[in-house]
Simulated assay, not measured.
Amino acid sequence: MRYIRYACIAVFAIALIAIALANRELVLLKVLPQEVAGYFAVNPTLQLPLFLVIFMGIIVGLLVGFVWEWFREHAVRAEAARKGREVRKLEREVKRLRGEKHQGKDEVLALLDETG
């Protein structure tokens, strides 16, 4: 199973390298469209290789998806925490009730009663 994982990683790495080599030309990134830039005094631009733009788009998309999913699952995590607190409360109550049941009895008889 480990070799299959390594093979998949290798294929993925080769594909990323091929994309990077095929898209090495520089592209001009502008912050604002030309029509809107006329209203402002500055219009910052940046020249990057196209593969960096593609990879940054993928990374930003993944991060937005992870954050979105984390917010979406908030209700599930809150419910699990509530159930965990309830379980701990009930375990304490069972322990207390078992102690009350065997109070005043011989320790050996109490142990035999618990196991049986």
Rank of each mutant, 00 (worst) to 15 (best):
F12W: 12
F12P: 00
F12C: 13
A13H: 01
A13S: 08
I14F: 15
I14L: 13
I14R: 02
I14M: 10
L16V: 12
L16M: 12
L16H: 05
A18E: 07
I19Y: 08
I19R: 00
A20L: 02
A20Q: 04
A20V: 07
A20N: 05
L21T: 04
A22D: 07
N23K: 01
N23V: 00
E25R: 03
E25Y: 06
E25P: 01
L26S: 09
L26E: 05
L26W: 06
V27C: 03
V27Q: 03
V27K: 02
V27T: 04
L28D: 10
L29C: 03
L29F: 03
K30E: 15
L32P: 01
L32S: 05
L32A: 06
P33T: 10
P33R: 09
Q34M: 11
Q34D: 15
E35N: 09
V36H: 05
V36D: 14
A37M: 08
A37S: 10
G38I: 08
Y39G: 06
Y39K: 10
A41P: 03
V42R: 11
V42H: 11
V42P: 00
T45P: 09
T45C: 05
Q47V: 05
Q47L: 02
Q47W: 07
L48V: 08
L48Y: 09
P49E: 08
L50H: 02
L50G: 01
L50W: 11
F51W: 15
F51C: 06
F51A: 02
L52R: 01
L52S: 01
L52A: 06
I54R: 02
I54M: 13
I54S: 08
I54K: 04
F55P: 00
F55M: 10
F55G: 02
M56V: 11
M56L: 15
G57H: 11
I58L: 13
I59S: 10
I59E: 14
V60R: 09
G61K: 09
G61H: 08
G61Q: 01
L62F: 12
L62N: 11
L62V: 15
L63W: 12
L63F: 12
